[in-house]
C-alpha cells in the first residue's frame, strides 16, 4: 500500500458572487479531479458570499466529495476533499 501525503490547494473567491464563484469552484474541482478523488489533494475555497456556500457545497457533494464548512473572520472556508478522507484510491 502506498501512502501519500495530502496537499491543500487554496481558491480565494473573496469579492466574487454566484454564479461566478460557483463556476470558478467547479472549474477548479474539474482541473483537480484526479488528485481530489485519489485524496492527494484537498481544495480549500474561501468566499465571503453567503449564498455561495450551500451552492458550492451541494455541487461538490453531487460530485462525490466531502465538504466541511468553517467560518473564519469575515469569510467562509469550504474544505472539499475525497469522501473517504485520507483514503488512497
Amino acid at each position: 500500500m502506498i501512502t501519500m501525503w495530502k496537499r491543500t490547494v487554496e481558491l480565494d473567491l473573496r469579492g466574487q458572487v454566484c454564479p461566478a464563484s460557483l463556476l470558478l469552484s467547479l472549474k477548479k474541482m474539474n482541473s483537480l479531479r484526479e488528485d481530489l478523488s485519489s485524496g492527494t489533494v484537498a481544495l480549500r475555497v474561501l468566499t465571503e458570499n453567503r449564498e455561495s456556500v450551500p451552492t458550492i457545497s451541494a455541487a461538490a457533494a453531487s460530485m462525490g466529495y466531502a465538504v466541511t464548512v468553517a467560518r473564519e473572520d469575515a469569510h467562509y472556508a469550504l474544505l472539499v476533499e475525497t469522501a473517504g478522507a485520507g483514503k488512497v484510491r
Partner: peptide, 22 residues
C-alpha cells in the same frame, strides 16, 4: 440544475460570463 441562483446581466457582463466558460 446545480441549485445555484441564476444570474442576470448586472452581475456578470457577457464577456466576463464567456470568460468563465460556463
Amino acid at each position: 440544475l446545480l441549485r445555484c441562483p441564476t444570474m442576470n446581466a448586472d452581475h456578470l457582463g457577457d464577456l466576463e460570463l464567456i470568460g468563465y466558460d460556463p
